[in-house]
């Protein structure tokens, strides 16, 4: 699929403006591409390479390092079941197997209707709330096996609409109002201490 569309390009430029070095925006922009297409398309990576002033090979180098970036289509709902130690102790693997049965796929797979992709995931930082899973990175804590099945049913039937499609992370974005920004500080430019620090003493700046 595609390069970033006009709206996302505007968002991309806003994101880029917050970093002193363009390449730093790469991961946020890859997320944006994934939000647009549901996965990170090659063309999007080529577009991001242009925006960040790097080569596409560098973009794919970064993209492929991170678990969350999918380079091929996945289900509308990505179901991550934690099976790491705390969840394993309290039924994480059973939960995973139940969902494998329910969806008729092995973890790592995608249902034929492209609704669900199931993953055997590492620790999700909800260890006291085991077993736990995420759907498109929205948490389900201390989830019972039947409850998990119901989540699937409800998503499939459309009874549940609170979870945005795969790729959407925070629905609220940061915006820095014009005139309120302190201004990005490029590493090669500022050679002076910020204004609020008192003038340096001969030995240093006093900290």
């Amino acid at each position: 699929m595609a390069r970033l569309n006009a709206e996302n390009l505007a968002t991309a430029n806003e994101i880029l403006s917050r970093y002193p070095v363009k390449k730093s925006a790469m991961i946020p922009l890859l997320h944006l591409a994934q939000e647009q297409d549901g996965y990170v398309a090659d063309d999007a990576m080529a577009h991001i390479a242009e925006l960040c002033d790097v080569t596409p090979a560098e973009v794919v180098g970064t993209c492929s390092f991170y678990e969350m970036f999918k380079r091929h289509e996945v289900g509308t709902y990505l179901v991550n079941v934690c099976t790491n130690i705390s969840c394993m102790l309290l039924g994480g693997e059973e939960l995973l197997h139940r969902l494998e049965d329910k969806l008729g796929i092995k973890h790592g797979g995608t249902t034929e209707d492209k609704m669900f992709t199931l993953e055997d995931y590492e620790c999700l930082a909800a260890c006291t709330e085991a077993p736990c899973m995420q759907v498109n990175y929205r948490y389900f804590h201390r989830i019972e096996l039947d409850e998990a099945e119901k989540v699937i049913d409800d998503l499939r039937s459309g009874a549940r609409t609170d979870i945005p499609p795969h790729g959407t992370l925070g629905k609220v974005r940061q915006h820095i109002p014009t005139g309120r920004s302190a201004g990005i500080v490029p590493p090669e430019q500022a050679n002076e201490a910020p204004v609020w620090l008192p003038a340096p003493t001969p030995e240093g700046e006093g900290s």
Binding site: D42, A46, T55, A57, V59, V60, G61, S64
Partner: peptide, 22 residues
């Protein structure tokens, strides 16, 4: 100054490769 090959993947699955078709 031609970073057209790069590490891809991670950990035990790390490989050197180019961008597809480039």
């Amino acid at each position: 100054g031609d970073p057209l090959i790069h590490f891809q993947g991670r950990g035990n699955g790390t490989e050197v490769n180019t961008f597809p078709d480039e």
